[in-house]
Measured scan of single mutants.
Amino acid sequence: PQECLLLEPGLNEIMANSLDYNERLWAWESWRSEVGKQLRPLYEEYVVLKNEMARANHYEDYGDYWRGDYEVNGVDGYDYSRGQLIEDVEHTFEEIKPLYEHLHAYVRAKLMNAYPSYISPIGCLPAHLLGDMWGRFWTNLYSLTVPFGQKPNIDVTDAMVDQAWDAQRIFKEAEKFFVSVGLPNMTQGFWENSMLTDPGNVQKAVCHPTAWDLGKGDFRILMCTKVTMDDFLTAHHEMGHIQYDMAYAAQPFLLRNGANEGFHEAVGEIMSLSAATPKHLKSIGLLSPDFQEDNETEINFLLKQALTIVGTLPFTYMLEKWRWMVFKGEIPKDQWMKKWWEMKREIVGVVEPVPHDETYCDPASLFHVSNDYSFIRYYTRTLYQFQFQEALCQAAKHEGPLHKCDISNSTEAGQKLFNMLRLGKSEPWTLALENVVGAKNMNVRPLLNYFEPLFTWLKDQNKNSFVGWSTDWSPYADQSIKVRISLKSALGDKAYEWNDNEMYLFRSSVAY
């Protein structure tokens, strides 16, 4: 590609939709070469300064400071330590791993069909083939991996386009969902002041979706909304933040926050679980009234959910574990990228498509890292959202599997949720969690119950496949010279610098 592309739109479109291996590689590498390399010296300084700040406030390091958001002291029976968070994340991840490994094996087999000769049947997945710029969410792999393609499509993007949905309609439908469970409408100022579409040439905007509580009843969302099912669900997520903000607005200023950061992320995700169900999509006209649910549509639905929800958990866990180790000084600065990709291979089963030396800073190419967000919130929120969903479905008197529950129109479920939201940070999160779900610790069981039918199906699908991955295989081993030459021509001086062995191999191949 010759034109100058922004991340959004532009590069993200390539990473969402392109099936051209080399075009995807160009976009993936260009973003890291342009952005990651510029941020490397800044990120090194950032780590030093943030650690100084944390230690001045009596924390061991900046990662310890972040984990302090979960700490509860002096509340008998509800205490929770920063170290306990690490333990809980690690042991819940071990419980999730078998499901993830089977999802990984299934996706690898489907990617082998889409990119023959580029995928190893026992290796890691190349990082640039996973549906977005970071491989964070695998949602866009659904069209390549759908188990029963002859069934009606449960990705309702086409239906939204056919019905001329726009950003306003998407957010109005999200608002209807919250109102149906007894939560309030958005304010008039929300509709007047939010930026729900890309302003285009009028001004440059950071398009990463964010929710804003500017105080004095001024709530806004910034999002360059596209007419897709993914953005339909994202709208519910962002509006969930606003509902939380509005619910605790009466609290004293210092207590106007989520019980912990994971709670804030979980609220909209609960609504997304219901909004994505075929039952709900039928009720708002995005699935045909004669759409029939059966075992095959159930597996299609659960796989689509797993690509988004299960596929991202190792990504989140590994990223934050790397940062915690960096802040603690356990990874020397001259080994940041080496350790990043070692951990990516070992924990996530994902491999870099071309080698990256220590001039890169791949983590900082992600919005949340370069903008100083702690990231473990996206792991804890996933466990909380299924715990909350299970409890709210019980309040809504849902009968049947958890993945079929739609809590819309249940004011009982809405009241149970609101009673927790309005507390803000005035009560320990362990107590707030217990008030809703009857337990005071994160628990992976509801998530595993939700995906149980899919897990059973995946194990059957993978019975003749290798489950797990070898960390030795690299996608650039066989194609390295071709890849390096093409990237050198595209990126010039910003391309990865060849070492002596690679230059010798190149000259030998040319001479041959």
Rank of each mutant, 00 (worst) to 15 (best):
T139K: 11
S374K: 08
W212I: 02
D245N: 07
G217C: 02
M229L: 09
F253D: 01
T210W: 07
E265W: 09
D245W: 02
N257R: 14
T308D: 10
D213N: 10
H368N: 08
Y373M: 12
T139H: 07
R377H: 10
T308I: 07
Y373I: 11
N153E: 11
N153K: 12
N257H: 13
L214Y: 04
Y378I: 11
T187H: 05
D372C: 03
D372W: 01
T210C: 06
E265M: 10
Q305Y: 04
D213S: 06
V206L: 08
M229S: 07
R220L: 00
M246P: 00
R381C: 06
S272C: 11
A250F: 09
E269D: 10
Q251H: 11
E192C: 07
E192F: 06
N257K: 13
I309G: 03
Y373K: 11
W212S: 02
Q188G: 12
T210I: 05
G215N: 14
R377I: 06
F375S: 08
D213V: 02
F367R: 07
T210G: 10
G189K: 01
E265V: 11
F367V: 07
Q188N: 06
I309H: 10
R136W: 07
G189V: 02
N257M: 11
D218Y: 01
R256H: 12
R136C: 07
P252Y: 03
E269I: 08
M246A: 05
F219N: 05
H241I: 08
M229H: 08
P252C: 07
G217I: 00
M246R: 06
G189A: 02
H237M: 12
H237W: 08
A249K: 00
P209Q: 08
H237Q: 13
P252M: 04
M246T: 14
E261W: 08
E269T: 11
P252R: 02
F367Y: 11
D245C: 09
Y378E: 08
Y378W: 11
I309Y: 11
H237D: 12
F375Q: 07
M246C: 05
V206Q: 11
E261G: 10
R136G: 08
K304G: 10
N257A: 09
M246S: 06
L214P: 06
D245E: 12
D213Y: 05
R377Q: 13
M246N: 00
R381T: 07
G217V: 01
F375T: 11
S272A: 14
L233C: 08
E269L: 11
Y378L: 10
P209T: 04
K304W: 09
F367G: 11
S272N: 12
Y373W: 10
E269S: 14
S272I: 09
D213R: 04
H237E: 13
D372P: 02
D218A: 01
H368G: 10
M229V: 09
L233Q: 13
T187K: 01
S272K: 08
F301P: 00
S272Y: 06
R377F: 07
F219L: 04
T139I: 13
F367P: 11
T234Q: 09
F253G: 01
A249R: 02
E192N: 04
H237P: 02
R256N: 05
H208Q: 11
F253T: 03
Q188I: 10
D213M: 02
H368M: 08
D245H: 12
H208Y: 08
I309W: 09
N140P: 09
F219P: 00
H264E: 12
Q305I: 02
D372S: 07
Y378H: 10
H368W: 06
F219K: 01
F137K: 12
P252E: 14
K304F: 12
R381E: 07
F137M: 08
S272T: 12
F367E: 09
P209H: 08
L233I: 07
Y373P: 05
F219Q: 04
N193P: 03
G217Y: 02
D230F: 12
D218F: 00
R377G: 08
F253K: 04
M246V: 12
D372V: 03
T234A: 08
D372F: 01
K216Q: 02
T234E: 07
S374Q: 13
T234L: 08
D245M: 09
F137H: 06
W212T: 03
R256D: 00
R256L: 07
F301L: 10
T308M: 13
D213I: 03
G189N: 02
R256W: 00
H237V: 12
F367M: 08
F301I: 10
F137A: 09
H237A: 11
F301D: 05
F219H: 05
R377L: 09
S374H: 08
H208D: 09
N257V: 10
N257E: 13
F253I: 04
A249D: 08
T234P: 00
H264T: 10
I309T: 13
N153S: 11
A249Q: 02
R136E: 11
G215H: 09
S374P: 09
R377Y: 06
Q251M: 05
F253P: 03
S374C: 08
R220T: 03
H368S: 12
T139R: 08
F375E: 10
A249C: 05
W212Q: 03
T308Q: 13
T308V: 08
N193Q: 15
R377A: 10
H241A: 13
M229K: 11
N193V: 05
G189E: 04
M246Q: 04
V206P: 01
K216D: 00
L214W: 01
A249P: 02
G189W: 01
F375V: 08
K304R: 12
I309M: 10
H264K: 05
N193S: 05
M246L: 05
L233G: 06
E269N: 09
E192V: 07
H368Y: 10
R220Y: 00
D218I: 00
R381P: 03
R381K: 10
R136S: 07
F253H: 01
H368V: 09
T234Y: 05
N257S: 12
S374F: 10
W212A: 04
T308N: 07
F253M: 06
E265N: 07
S374T: 11
A249N: 05
V206I: 10
F301E: 11
E192I: 06
S374V: 11
D372Q: 03
Y373T: 06
N153A: 10
S374L: 05
D230M: 07
R136V: 08
F253N: 04
R136H: 08
S272H: 07
E192R: 06
M229R: 09
A249V: 05
R381M: 12
F375G: 10
R136Y: 11
R136D: 02
P252L: 03
V206W: 06
P252H: 07
H241N: 12
M229I: 10
H368L: 08
H368K: 10
A249T: 07
E265P: 09
R256E: 06
N153P: 08
E269W: 07
D230W: 10
W212E: 02
Q188V: 11
N140D: 11
T234I: 13
R220M: 04
F137R: 11
D372G: 12
F301W: 12
L233S: 05
P209N: 06
R136Q: 09
R377K: 13
T308A: 10
H264F: 03
G189D: 00
D372R: 04
K216Y: 02
H241D: 13
Q305S: 06
H241K: 14
F375R: 06
Q305R: 09
P209W: 01
M229Y: 11
T139A: 10
E192Y: 04
H241F: 13
Q251W: 03
A250Q: 12
F375M: 12
A250I: 14
G215D: 05
L233A: 05
S374Y: 08
N257F: 11
E265R: 06
R136T: 07
T234D: 07
G217A: 01
F219G: 00
E261M: 09
E261C: 11
R220D: 00
I309L: 09
N193R: 02
F137P: 11
F375Y: 11
T139D: 13
E192H: 03
G215F: 14
N257Y: 14
S374G: 11
Q305V: 04
R377C: 09
T308G: 12
F367W: 12
G215I: 01
F253W: 02
H208I: 11
K216P: 01
A250K: 04
R220A: 00
R381H: 10
G215P: 01
F375A: 11
N193E: 05
